[in-house]
Design a protein around this nucleic acid. Structure first.
Lengths: 108, 108
DNA sequence: TAATAAAATTGTAATATTGCAATATCACGT
DNA sequence: ACGTGATATTGCAATATTACAATTTTATTA
């Protein structure tokens, strides 16, 4: 095998796993934090700040983008990233709901 | 490559990634939820409820256990799992701190 | 002690992920 | 048009993950 059997789980469960999976790599945590702390930073800034090669950072950015957590603004040849606050909030809500639900259930 | 360069990141970032990585697979989300909803369920219960083979469930249980999120009680030949509430709370705190920090930073 | 039952471990195949060098693309300035 | 700089894409190697069959371990019961 090697692949995840997503079809046997509910959409709700897959949504939780999709969001947390993106945050489940230190490079992506660092990227999200760096973008949030430095408005309008570009790929090169991240390469310098984090210490992974440019294609690697670009790849992680693409993963984060898939979940809608990033906005981009083209200014000349530069591409500036910012966090999509609405989507970050939605992500936080989904993850927090998981914790709340779990804590409530296991305290009954 | 194939391995994650953990050493280039801070402990704080690695801790966040470690916790979220565990929740980053639907089987593990389902396992955590099922255990929290059914106190003292065993491996076999999870196999039936989730629909993955016994070794697969056992493997995911081991991953969750590594983060300290599970307690086990041996009763005869059965092994009953419960959620470690303190650790779940710690996990929630770490993940929530990440969201709070990120939201605060990107609103400045 | 043998049969049984539950769960971990081992071994293995398939797929996914991580990381980077090389290259391509795209927009700007000259 | 040409060179430059920024980023995405491609291709590839190494490692990790996912899943399961077969086996082992452990405890119980007949």
């Amino acid at each position: 095998m090697g692949f995840t059997k997503k079809h046997i789980f509910t959409d709700q469960i897959n949504t939780i796993a999709n969001y947390t999976k993106v945050i489940g790599h230190p490079a992506r945590v660092a990227i999200i934090q760096h973008i949030s702390e430095n408005k309008n930073c570009n790929c090169n800034d991240l390469v310098k700040a984090i210490g992974l090669a440019q294609p690697t950072i670009s790849q992680h950015l693409a993963e984060i983008r898939k979940t809608g957590l990033l906005d981009q603004k083209v200014k000349g040849k530069n591409l500036y990233y910012t966090i999509n606050k609405d989507q970050l909030n939605e992500c936080r809500r989904v993850v927090n709901d998981f914790f709340v639900k779990t804590q409530v259930s296991c305290s009954k």
